[in-house]
Design a protein around this nucleic acid. Structure first.
Lengths: 376, 376
DNA sequence: CTTAGCACTCTCGCCTCACGAGTGCTAACC
DNA sequence: GGTTAGCACTCGTGAGGCGAGAGTGCTAAG
């Protein structure tokens, strides 16, 4: 009964989605004909819509009132119907400029990426800090704050820095501290956690046993590395909550029933973003696969995410460091634009990191929007 | 006609506030009599309520339905009626424990303070990072990341650390970097911004002119200090949004009108927290005055804050470093508890910072809840 | 000054009803 | 067979009305 997915039906599906994304209200057959000057009558469109519904691409919230896409409908759109766009050169330039302004301050990159992502895609954004696949120690510096307190600055490969204060015995000179830090740096230079643990056990450098103080420093470093490693689930940064809540999904369209739902949705959204529940399972998946991943509505099985779509991309340097960033919003989302935004910012961040790692750096043309594949 | 503010009327005001804070619904005369076993009849209470209303301490949302406190009512409660409590020892212990777990990692203190504040006061929390009254440079370390990139770690008095990558010419040895950093550290040690700018202009150390590289480093430090100084309005951290949004104020009690308002309130709240609009003017005020400040509803004149109360306290070390932290929530707020929470965490943070500055440090009993005055 | 009694007011929830949008179906048309 | 016009039908939406209940304000008595 449902019939084949003819060319025209695909066009209609595409138009329904476009229209629904624009207006956030169910789209009627007549509207479609009128707005897009279709060369067929509303009745024909209705027939095709019925067929698309049987195929599982559209639904009917109510008997009257138009159609809205299903998750499967969006999926088909993303995979087959959508034209792949890029951000306009002007937007690309603006974004690059913002990153240029915080060049060097790598602790701000993730935050900035979130902010830009949210503003550009008009939805909430999420990102994890880039994480070295294998944390490797680089060096330790000790700086006296006063007689009994020092600041330890541990630097790891890839520009990862961790600072920590520690109490020291009074009477240690800066030279003292520097020498101790130097010894520890030499001992642990370029080691991974497991190797560092071994070296901490022997507690000798070139056969000379370490002093108590130096051993304490080694322990400090090892503990810091363990903390990094253990921190199993990534901290997820996010931004643009307000951006997302301006979407009509969160407006009390009509009736108090709707209003109540809107508020409930709001609260749940907040929970998702704050706790990362429903989001964190997606991270390792996105890390594993390259390209841009699109998860639409309940596809992933997580019930809390039923009404949301997530667009994630991995960024980083192959084999060295990687993180994930993306956009989250209602399933009714401007997929082409969101996807190109995510793709662009991921490649931008990758290039920034590559420069840091001195691989593949393209100093001037840092932000080429590489057309990587979009589905894993 | 209104009559004096007798003892009984004060009691009634207090009970109305307590009851309203508990239940979030307008409180009726009969409820009060029943629940608190008042030795008078509802009619008497009604008369007193009418008097309190004429005095400006209570209002009437509707003709029927009970009374709710006005801003002035809350104000009188906070200043005269409220008994000053402290957090229970168990809670104090729990909070201390959480801070103990991140001892040393001072970049996490503010975040933790926000989180604890929110969870304890069941409202949103805000905090600014501690800021030195006068930024003073301590030392610079340079760590090579690879041949053409180095990480500069600038340390300022009070444990403030700023990191920044910078490009370097290939061929510089670690020893090279160390020497250059040492020279710059010696040159700028303990200087404030203005002095640093002077020294940067002369560009000599002990009469010996600096190399180009060293001059570049000096510039880097000066720019970083300028950025600190210029950053006029403090970045405001916040947490506990979800906590606040669980308050009944943000539930669609009944009627779609209410629901719409709830959503609008939600959005506005988000804006306040994200942008700091309406909040930032309070910061310098709180920094200037010691003790705990309570701003109730529209008292401060900011319209956006009409429905919110803010409880702020300054924390830090006198004459050295200071920040602000506090709680924000609907005017219907458990003031005694919120105030004691803010007071406690502010004193805890102050002690932690004092330890860092080596003044007045009380190593074991770090968290005495000093009973400082509560109004500026 | 306090209290009992009572009329009055106003919200809330529920129901009904009419309207209109949009569909699904049937039958005619190309 | 695909397409179209016509039309009955469905259902959400909003307005209006109504009864119940809660709580007050007032008055008059204790």
């Amino acid at each position: 009964m449902s019939g084949p997915l003819t060319e025209r039906r695909q066009t209609i599906l595409k138009l329904v989605i476009q229209e629904f994304v624009d207006t956030a209200t169910p789209v009627a057959s007549e509207t479609l004909v009128r707005k897009y000057r279709l060369p067929v009558s509303p009745a024909t469109v209705r027939n095709d819509m019925a067929a698309l519904e049987e195929l599982g691409f559209l639904t009917h919230p109510h008997t009257s009132g138009g159609r809205i896409p299903t998750d499967a409908g969006y999926r088909f759109f993303v995979e087959n119907l959508m034209e792949r766009t890029s951000l306009s050169p002007a937007e690309q330039r603006m974004i690059r400029h913002q990153f240029y302004q915080v060049r060097g301050e790598l602790d701000q990159w993730v935050q900035l990426a979130c902010a830009v992502l949210a503003r550009t895609a008009h939805n909430a954004s999420v990102a994890t800090a880039p994480r070295a696949e294998q944390l490797r120690f680089k060096s330790l510096e000790l700086i006296a704050i006063h007689e009994t307190m020092a600041l330890a600055v541990m630097v790891f490969h890839g520009g990862i820095v961790k600072q920590q204060t520690l109490p020291i015995e009074p009477g240690r000179t800066p030279e003292d501290l520097r020498r101790a830090a130097g010894i520890v740096s030499d001992l642990l230079a370029d080691t991974t956690l497991s190797r560092a643990e071994e070296l901490a056990a022997t507690a000798t450098l070139n056969g000379i046993p370490l002093s108590d103080f130096e051993r304490g420093l080694v322990d400090l470093v090892v503990r810091a590395m363990q903390a990094f490693e253990e921190q199993a689930q990534e901290q997820i940064y996010s931004d643009g909550l307000l951006e997302m809540l301006s979407q009509p999904e969160f407006l009390p369209a009509s009736g108090r029933d709707d209003a109540e739902r809107a508020i409930e949705r709001m609260r749940r959204t907040l929970e998702i973003l704050k706790s990362g529940r429903g989001l964190s399972p997606l991270i390792p998946q996105a890390l594993a696969s390259g390209g841009v991943q699109v998860i639409i509505g309940g596809e992933h099985g997580e019930d809390a995410m039923r009404d949301y779509s997530v667009i994630l991309a991995r960024y980083g340097v192959e084999g060295a460091i990687a993180g994930v960033l993306g956009v989250i919003g209602p399933t009714r989302m401007a997929y082409p634009r969101s996807i190109s935004t995510v793709r662009y910012i991921a490649s931008l961040m990758s290039n920034l990191l590559a420069e840091l790692y001195n691989v593949n750096a393209r100093p001037s043309d840092v932000a080429t929007d590489t057309q990587d594949e979009q589905r894993a």
